[in-house]
Design a protein around this nucleic acid. Sequence first.
DNA 1: TACATTACTGACCAGTCAGTCAGTAAAAAC
DNA 2: GTTTTTACTGACTGACTGGTCAGTAATGTA
Lengths: 216, 216
Amino acid sequence: MNTTEISESPSRQRRKEARPAELMAAALELFVERGFTATKLDDVAARAGVSKGTLYLYFASKEELFKAVIQQGILPVLDQGEEMLSQFQGDAGALLEAMLLRWWEMVGSTHLAGITKLMISEAGNFPEVAQFYYENVIVRGRGLIRTVLERGIASKQFREMDVETAIDVILAPQMMFTIWRHSLGPCDCGKQDPEAYLKTHMNLLLNGLLTGEKKK
Amino acid sequence: MNTTEISESPSRQRRKEARPAELMAAALELFVERGFTATKLDDVAARAGVSKGTLYLYFASKEELFKAVIQQGILPVLDQGEEMLSQFQGDAGALLEAMLLRWWEMVGSTHLAGITKLMISEAGNFPEVAQFYYENVIVRGRGLIRTVLERGIASKQFREMDVETAIDVILAPQMMFTIWRHSLGPCDCGKQDPEAYLKTHMNLLLNGLLTGEKKK
DNA sequence: TACATTACTGACCAGTCAGTCAGTAAAAAC
DNA sequence: GTTTTTACTGACTGACTGGTCAGTAATGTA
């Protein structure tokens, strides 16, 4: 009743290199849609265009597949974020906006965005993966924003503030927006477009963060 | 290996009135911890101190139990919020803070907080329940904040703003904080206490919302 | 004490799905 | 063309779990 299929590819193909990435992509989609336990490996394999047996050639178990989806998917984004931070020339406000936009392009608007919801849903069932995610995604991600804020405070562009809470206030709307699209989003189709949302969000934020006279 | 037990109550008891609430409470806890599919009805029954057969005396199916947990749990809170809004005397800033604090007392600090995470995780698998939750919780909840903001704008305490986005910016950190406690929370035990967090959050917010000179 | 009612139990059944492995066919080696 | 290698398949199995129901015991009634 619920089985996903591709129903193409008349004959069997041998593509050892491409399989793992294709399987992880299929798994990510289904894990995000249905959750880990509710996702059947037959469906993952079918969506990737192979049989379940093939899946087991590349991943030792369902849990290993889950770990691979989380780890392989998100780490490159953090690397790139840290790279960007070290390169950027310009004031802290522009940097903050650039980073959030970049995040939207690389994660928010792609399938990777679902990892946020997936990790939140499944953290309780996979404490070790949750620990990994916390140390390698949450801590590093917050570190990026912390650096921007501290740079802005040092240059007097931002006022003094409780930096850790400010990080929450900056990130939470982004996270919620992302989570929304993969959960209750389908219930309200009249949601505005992401870039406009981000601009308005930034405007509201900066007017709470900037030291000088309020702008706009 | 994973079965939850109570291992008390030597003899069988007959308590028709109390069973449904006890079963829903047990179900909420386990659904939040493990997700809907990963939760076994044997475990729910065991945690409520009854056998699985008893569960089926009060709920027609696992899905009906899920619906009951969501619907019975959260609706009274919205009623009370609307009641409070209509009674409150005072400026909009104080009202906003009072409402967020109230929400923390009634939901955030209780087991009900888990419903947020649960609904986000399972929305994809239960579109009808998601629709119900959207219309009866999300829409009504946002309506509460919208009223407060509009009252503040009318009285010139708050500046002109994009109200819908402002609602997101206000609610998102609260939601994320709640979700956090039921997902990755155990990974960072050094999290600050909720009331201090709420105060700091409000301070950051108001300085972006208020029309006059910045306070503090 | 005898009988009736019903909340409750837990063994059971039927369906599901993670994981296996003997077999197949595509590519490579000769 | 023949043989070898190996990526891939899908029928199968065993464990698990949602849902059932004949039976049990607590409570009420006389």
